[in-house]
Design a protein around this nucleic acid. Structure first.
Length: 427
DNA sequence: TTTTGAGTTGTTCGA
DNA sequence: GTCGAACAACTCAAA
């Protein structure tokens, strides 16, 4: 069983299939490509691997290197008939898995994909005419109709096959705490949220100073918990629960979009926007630097960026605000912001992150209308009326140490509208 | 087959 | 102060 983004024993169909097939060796390959993830997510991965190591009574084998070399090599060592995985639908993962499958086939072995990190596998939600959706709401309706499997039980203490391990990776120091990554604690966290927070999720989730969200995204990213369990244990009869379920539908939707159109990871989905005027000169890089370090002079933006860098997470409402600011007040490329998010977010996920950015930039599927420009001051007053969020992340707020606003929002809004308009009229 | 209405997250302006 | 309209263009499903 080759674990990738499914670092759990319970409710793991690929693992169940492997165990149904014979004795199993649990493997994780530390792919050098993962070094791009940034220290925060590497630390989280470290914690998740530690938890999995403990959960397998120390049987987890870690190998360092290119999976196309390491997986077939280990399969040879133990003469494995098959390598089981949860299917990966990202651009890199698909290419990697094809290479691994090819290499395994050379030795007469098979790569068997069972299940995926999603409630409904990418490619499986289709319109009645068989085409994929490009709008969220009809997608989510069909996604709900398609239903999802019930969670399956964890295996009972299998006799794991042993093999030499390169050992767990170093844990980069990130300077902040990451909550426990054991399956047991993550499930406990979910159930606490379900019992205490889910009924009010619809009304509380948008206020960044309020602890109104599940905070499960990092664990969904690494598959410590599968969305199917969250769906099975929430109630579609409650509006608030349905709102939460819809967030899981967004995750599936963007995975589906990226699966169908891999190039949209870093390119505009809507090609018309390839010609929009963006600022990329030295002054633009200086502006970007102020955005990254939370010194724009707009408190809600700066609080968000400091929360991101200082904790590995940012409240979703604030993600939209800082994204709108980067794209529409600073006129910078959305992928600059997306790359920075991916480097710092514990839950950083290519599909959700980059398509979320495309939504903010108006270049993606189901995009925000171009004239929807967030006013960072009005958003702060509306969603952080008491200023508790900005005060928490900006200690110098209200003193002379806090910078003046780096731009005039009214002016930059007009500028953004003009640039978007120019693309529209030329197309 | 064609038409119609609705669609995650907003802001501004003028009545 | 409140409220509705305008700010486009396109997808999708139901009528």
């Amino acid at each position: 069983m080759w674990f990738r983004r499914d670092l759990r024993l319970r409710d793991n169909p690929a693992l169940a299939a492997a165990l149904g097939d014979g004795d199993v060796l649990p493997l994780f390959v530390l792919d050098p490509a993962f070094e791009a993830a940034g220290a925060a997510r590497q630390s989280l991965l470290h914690d998740c691997l530690h938890a999995l190591h403990d959960a397998t009574d120390g049987a987890l084998v870690v190998r360092r290197g290119d999976p196309a070399d390491e997986v077939p090599a280990l399969a040879d060592e133990i003469d494995a008939a098959s390598v089981y995985v949860a299917k990966d639908f990202g651009p890199y993962g698909r290419r990697r898995d094809e290479q691994v499958a090819d290499a395994l086939r050379g030795g007469g072995r098979r790569l068997r994909g069972v299940g995926s990190p999603y409630a409904v596998e990418p490619g499986n939600v289709l319109k009645d005419d068989g085409d994929p959706y490009s709008v969220f709401t009809p997608f989510s309706r069909k996604w709900r109709e398609s239903g999802w499997d019930d969670p399956i039980e964890a295996p009972r203490r299998p006799d794991w096959i042993a093999a030499p391990s390169d050992g767990l990776p170093e844990r980069p120091d990130v300077g902040f705490e990451i909550p426990s990554s054991t399956e047991q604690n993550v499930i406990a966290r979910w159930r606490r949220f379900r019992d205490d927070g889910l009924d009010d999720y619809g009304t509380r989730r948008d206020f960044p100073a309020v602890d109104g969200t599940s905070r499960l995204s990092p664990y969904l990213k690494y598959g410590v918990v599968h969305p199917r369990q969250l769906l099975a244990e929430s109630d579609a009869g409650s509006d608030s629960h349905r709102t939460f379920q819809s967030e899981l539908a967004w995750r599936d939707f963007y995975a589906d979009v990226l699966h169908r159109r891999p190039r949209t990871a870093w390119e505009n989905l809507d090609r018309r926007f390839d010609r929009i005027e963006l600022d990329t000169d030295a002054a633009a890089h200086e502006k970007f630097e102020r955005w990254c370090t939370g010194r724009t002079g707009f408190p809600i933006v700066d609080a968000g960026m400091r929360q991101l860098v200082g904790s590995g997470w940012m409240h979703n409402r604030v993600r939209m605000i800082v994204a709108s600011f980067l794209v529409k007040d600073l006129h910078l490329p959305w992928w600059w912001g997306a790359r920075f998010f991916l480097r710092h977010l514990l839950d950083g996920d290519l599909a959700s992150n980059n398509h979320g950015w495309q939504w903010a930039a108006g270049t993606g599927t189901d995009a925000a209308p171009y004239f929807r420009v967030f006013n960072p001051t009005a958003q702060g007053e509306r969603w952080d009326p008491d200023g508790h969020y900005v005060a928490r992340w900006i200690p110098e707020l209200g003193t002379s140490a806090y910078p003046e606003p780096m731009v005039d929002h009214k002016v930059e809004r007009e500028e953004a509208l003009a640039r978007y308009q120019a693309v529209k009229t030329r197309s």
